[in-house]
Structure formats: structure tokens, C-alpha cells
Write a protein that binds this DNA or RNA. Structure first.
Length: 228
DNA sequence: ATGAAGATTGCCT
DNA sequence: GGCAATCTTCATG
């Protein structure tokens, strides 16, 4: 079932755990890919130093300041896209939930084809360079990580601002099967690297699920070496 | 105008 | 475990 907009009209920390088990579908000319969410992370917006919205509204994050139930897609590291669900749009809170990982439940072949191309290649799946031999990606790794999830679903900046609460829209969010056994195994934890509000559990995931991304501490790159 | 850092990933040793 | 790839955004001069 399509998720009603009211679902997203709450603080992101409340929405995040409820998104686990929900299904994000993207339908294109190439076909349909559906992902059941297994890991998400909440961002509080203006009050959150780690949020893109912390320093106010810009062209890039404008969608976060809009109504809930829309996708905020951003480009990072020169090659990756990540997708968020905008929550509580009113009051300029600009909160959102980052979709970090999921399990492919439909369109696995298409997802694998997309994941086999170079990260930022545009256009039809039938084109674009195939990088080395990534043809045999394990199913659990197809959408394991925020950028991988976007690539598997074929999400790019063109979907920034897309409404996921409209039936028949290319990108839509469906409610999950409501598996109680699974819901009971939701793990939470603080985000690493953010000192403020560390007491709030920002990350939510299905404990033990193989598609949950592995934590890799962020290492700032050393400054570019200047040649004399 | 210019530069540094980034809600990451894949490949290298 | 380390580092390159690659470019947009934001802050500063």
C-alpha cells in the first residue's frame, strides 16, 4: 500500500524506525526495482550540525525545506547519489531520513546491471562502460549502503523533489509487510562523529540483517599534495 | 576566483 | 587498512 503523506509529517527520528520494512519502488523504461529498507538514519535539520540543512536553505537542499513525503537527492564525492525522505516540512525544520541500505525484492537483474556500470553513468542501462568484473555482485550487496541503494534503484538528481506519496508516480514508498518478528529486532545507535545530541539514537537497522551496511569510520583525506 | 571537505565506494597492498 | 576517484557546495580572499 502507498504510504500516506501524514506518515512523513513527523519528526525524522520518529519516522526513521517506521521506515524499516517499507518498500521503495522506482519504475523506469528499463523496468521496476523495489527495495525493502533495512537501515536508515535520521537527520534533524536546522538543529543538527551533521545535516545539510544546518546552515540554512540553499539551492542544493531546498527540497528539505519543502513539504514532507518528497525525496531529497544529493550528489557527493564527485560520483555518488544518496536519497532522503523529507519529514515534517512545516516550521522550516527541514528534517529528513537517509536511506542507508535495503534488500532487493524485485528487479534484481536490473539492479545488478545498474550496479555493474560505472557509478555516475547516465542514460539507458544498455549503455555505459562496464567496470572490470563486478558482474557477480552478491545479492546482499546490491543495495548495501546509501550510494549503492541509489545506484541499484537508478536514482539521481533528476528525482530530487520527487513526491513518493502519489500512486503511479515513478518513485513511490509502500508500507511493509508488518512482520512483527522483524520489527522486534530493530537495533538503534548514535551517529558517530557528531558530538551534539549524542543521546538520541539516530540510526535504525534490522539487527543481524545481511544487507545492513558495515560501519566504516570516516577518514578525512589528507590535503592534496602540492608539487613544487 | 579559489580551495577544502564531504551523510562513499571500490580496488590496492 | 589505506587511498584514489571526482565534483558540488560552501567559505574565504
Amino acid at each position: 500500500m502507498l504510504i500516506p503523506r501524514d506518515f512523513f509529517a513527523r519528526p525524522s527520528v520518529e519516522v526513521a524506525p517506521d521506515l524499516l520494512g517499507c518498500v521503495l519502488e522506482h519504475e523506469t523504461a528499463d523496468g521496476l526495482v523495489a527495495v525493502e529498507l533495512t537501515e536508515v538514519e535520521a537527520y534533524a535539520g536546522r538543529s543538527d550540525p551533521a545535516s545539510h540543512a544546518y546552515r540554512g536553505k540553499t539551492q542544493r537542499n531546498a527540497v528539505m525545506f519543502g513539504p514532507p513525503g518528497h525525496a531529497y537527492v544529493y550528489f557527493t564525492y564527485g560520483m555518488h547519489f544518496c536519497v532522503n525522505m523529507v519529514c515534517l516540512g512545516e516550521q522550516g525544520s527541514a528534517s529528513a531520513v537517509l536511506l542507508r541500505a535495503g534488500a532487493i525484492i524485485a528487479g534484481e537483474d536490473l539492479a545488478r546491471a545498474r550496479r555493474t556500470r560505472s557509478p555516475v553513468s547516465e542514460g539507458p542501462v544498455s549503455e555505459g562502460p562496464v567496470s572490470k568484473d563486478r558482474a557477480r555482485i552478491a545479492p546482499r550487496d546490491l543495495a548495501r549502503g546509501p550510494a549503492r541503494l541509489c545506484q541499484a534503484l537508478g536514482i539521481d538528481r533528476g528525482l530530487d523533489g520527487a513526491d513518493v506519496c502519489v500512486a503511479g508516480a515513478p518513485l513511490r514508498m509502500l508500507s511493509g509487510a508488518g512482520n512483527p518478528a522483524r520489527s522486534a529486532k530493530i537495533a538503534t545507535g548514535p551517529r558517530v562523529g557528531v558530538s551534539s545530541a549524542a543521546e538520541i539514537p539516530w540510526r535504525f537497522w534490522y539487527d543481524g540483517d545481511p544487507t545492513v551496511s558495515v560501519y566504516r569510520p570516516h577518514v578525512p583525506r589528507r590535503p592534496k599534495l602540492v608539487t613544487p
